[in-house]
Amino acid sequence: MNDFQLLFVSNLLGYATQRNLSPERLCTLSGIDLEAFKQQTSVVITPKQLNDLWLNASHLSNDPLFGLHFGESMQLAALGVVGQIIQTSKTVGEALTHAADFIQLLTNLFDMDVSRTDRTFSVQFIPHPDRAAESPFALRQMLDLSMAFVLHEVDGLVLKRIKPDVVTLAYDTADTPEYERVLRCRPIEKTDANSLVFDGQYWDEPILTANHELQQILLQKASALLNTFGTGQLLNERILNYLIANAYLGMPTLEEIAANFNTSSRSLQRKLQEEGVTYQQLADSIRKSLAVTYLESGRYPIKEISYLLGYNELSAFSRAFKRWTGSTPVTYQKR
């Protein structure tokens, strides 16, 4: 396997750990030598092993949409690829065009094609029939993952929460409302293609390279989660890790967190209460930590920091920051 594929499998195991699955058990069931993988000594993961890894992750998590949720959560996971794309791109259109070339570094199950019309542009995922027959479950999960990942990475390139105009799938969905939530499009159309169609205005949108630097900072903060295969963490610790790893696009709602952890918001609240904490407290602790980091760096306007942390109004962020620190963001940054 190449380095990007190894990184991908590593992140899949890291996300499984985040979902409180045992990477040792996952690898054993999938015929993968975890110790050899950790050492990256002559590691070869076959298509069958990768297909089995997806099957076992989905089964053990009781989540048939494991790939979709992984794609929603992995903005930072493929940063090696994303970083190279950003370095060679100036606009969203250029970045997606280059991403189509890079997709083969991560998977050979399908091609990614980017096309443009006068009013829209589309990203289509085209399976290879022979490889699809060899790894059908992995193909489905990788398609789900890639569609969610592309959508969220476009967000990260321009710091806007972008909604596609049209989403089409070539397969039946087990939970259509969840696809609509993650892919931000209703209704999702059933056709013979897997595609995301965007308004053409975003094609020439400049990439915010400074946000790539922010991703790198957060990647360092999340490195323990992404590179350590340990289980047994409390739910609040796993949620904190998730929030750190994905915070550069704002705080997810309680409902979004619950969906990604394949549970109901009520059940998640109850489990957190048993651990003596609320989701609001967890989110605020991350917001405070990141707000201080951003302000101390001096690289980001306060209004941008406010947006990054999920506040629609600057005044709301200012009130929250003063509650946390006793100082306004302006005063704190001047120090």
Rank of each mutant, 00 (worst) to 15 (best):
1 M>I: 09
2 N>H: 10
6 L>Y: 01
9 V>F: 04
10 S>F: 00
11 N>G: 15
13 L>D: 04
19 R>K: 15
21 L>H: 09
22 S>M: 10
26 L>H: 14
27 C>A: 12
31 G>N: 14
33 D>T: 04
35 E>T: 10
40 Q>Y: 09
44 V>F: 07
46 T>E: 09
47 P>D: 00
57 A>D: 00
61 S>H: 04
64 P>G: 06
69 H>Q: 11
70 F>V: 03
72 E>T: 11
79 L>W: 05
84 Q>A: 06
84 Q>M: 08
86 I>P: 00
88 T>W: 10
91 T>M: 11
99 A>F: 11
109 L>F: 05
110 F>T: 06
115 S>D: 14
118 D>E: 14
123 V>P: 01
124 Q>E: 13
128 H>C: 03
129 P>S: 08
130 D>N: 11
131 R>S: 05
132 A>S: 15
134 E>P: 01
135 S>C: 05
138 A>N: 08
147 M>R: 07
149 F>D: 12
149 F>L: 11
152 H>L: 08
153 E>K: 01
154 V>N: 05
155 D>H: 10
156 G>R: 14
167 V>H: 00
175 D>L: 09
177 P>C: 10
179 Y>R: 12
180 E>D: 06
184 R>Q: 10
184 R>A: 09
188 I>T: 08
189 E>A: 11
190 K>I: 14
191 T>Y: 00
192 D>L: 10
193 A>C: 10
194 N>Q: 13
194 N>R: 13
195 S>Q: 15
202 Y>P: 07
202 Y>E: 01
203 W>K: 06
208 L>Q: 14
215 Q>N: 13
215 Q>I: 01
216 Q>S: 12
217 I>F: 06
217 I>G: 01
219 L>K: 15
219 L>T: 10
221 K>D: 14
222 A>V: 01
223 S>D: 05
233 Q>D: 11
240 L>R: 13
241 N>E: 11
244 I>R: 02
245 A>K: 13
247 A>T: 11
249 L>P: 02
250 G>V: 07
252 P>Y: 00
254 L>P: 04
255 E>D: 13
255 E>S: 15
256 E>H: 03
257 I>F: 00
258 A>M: 09
260 N>M: 13
261 F>Q: 12
263 T>H: 03
267 S>V: 09
269 Q>R: 11
281 Q>E: 09
281 Q>N: 09
282 L>P: 05
283 A>M: 00
284 D>R: 14
289 S>A: 15
290 L>R: 12
293 T>R: 09
299 R>A: 11
301 P>M: 02
308 L>S: 02
309 L>S: 06
309 L>N: 03
316 A>F: 06
326 G>R: 14
328 T>H: 08
330 V>M: 10
334 K>C: 03
335 R>I: 11
